Simulated scan of single mutants.
Amino acid sequence: MSIPGYRMATLAEFVGRELGTSDWVLVDQARIDAFAQCTGDRQWIHVDVERAKRESPFGATIAHGYLTLSLLASLAIEIGLIPGDASSGLNYGLDKVRFMAPVKAGSRVRSRVTLLSVEDKGDGRYMVKMANELQTDGASKPALLAETLALLVA
């Protein structure tokens, strides 16, 4: 997506504003299993569908918290976090992360991003801080709240 008027030179004008909301992304069992395979985190609550139906307080397997966290970068890019006149955007870190509610297998999530601050780092580089709210379709509270940092390079 493209955010009207959002460029490297106008970043500061967007502080305090919502940049946008991503499209919905399906977090299905195949994605959860692939994440478990990549990370080695094969805890039953994530990968054992039958046991999770029987024993989990959620009645189903749930996504890893770090899986939901890892979605934020691509969803922010989809929204248009990296202005068209930037050469790149680099993940820089996290300031706050809270896993607020589980994401059951088969759920759809999306991210709402608000620009919190911009810091000129010189040489055409800007550190931006975003508030990310990962929402689950049909849920009353967000799955995840996180403040993320990115370095945008002209």
Rank of each mutant, 00 (worst) to 15 (best):
A73R: 06
G138W: 02
Y6K: 01
A34N: 07
I79L: 10
V15A: 09
S111N: 15
M127A: 11
G16E: 08
P57H: 13
M127Y: 08
S22R: 02
L81T: 06
G40E: 08
R98F: 03
P57T: 11
L144A: 04
V47R: 10
V153S: 02
A86E: 07
G5T: 11
M1K: 05
D85G: 14
R108E: 07
L75D: 07
L152N: 01
L149A: 09
P57E: 08
V15K: 12
L19C: 07
K129M: 03
G106D: 06
L152E: 01
S88Q: 12
W24G: 02
D48Y: 09
G89A: 11
V97T: 12
W44N: 06
Q135L: 14
R98H: 07
R112I: 09
A76M: 13
E78C: 06
G80H: 13
G89M: 10
E50W: 03
T21G: 06
M1G: 08
A60F: 04
K96S: 13
P102K: 01
T39L: 12
V25D: 09
A34V: 06
L152H: 01
D95I: 01
R110S: 10
E133S: 04
G16V: 09
A52M: 02
T148M: 10
V25W: 15
E50Q: 08
A131S: 13
V128N: 07
Q135N: 08
D33G: 10
A76N: 15
M127R: 15
G124R: 01
A9F: 04
A131K: 05
A146D: 06
T39E: 13
K96D: 14
S111P: 00
E50S: 03
N132H: 15
A139V: 06
D123A: 15
N91M: 10
Q37V: 13
S70Y: 13
A52E: 01
D41R: 02
S87C: 09
K96R: 15
L67A: 04
I79N: 10
S22Y: 04
L90N: 08
G138S: 09
V49E: 14
Y92H: 13
L151V: 15
D123E: 15
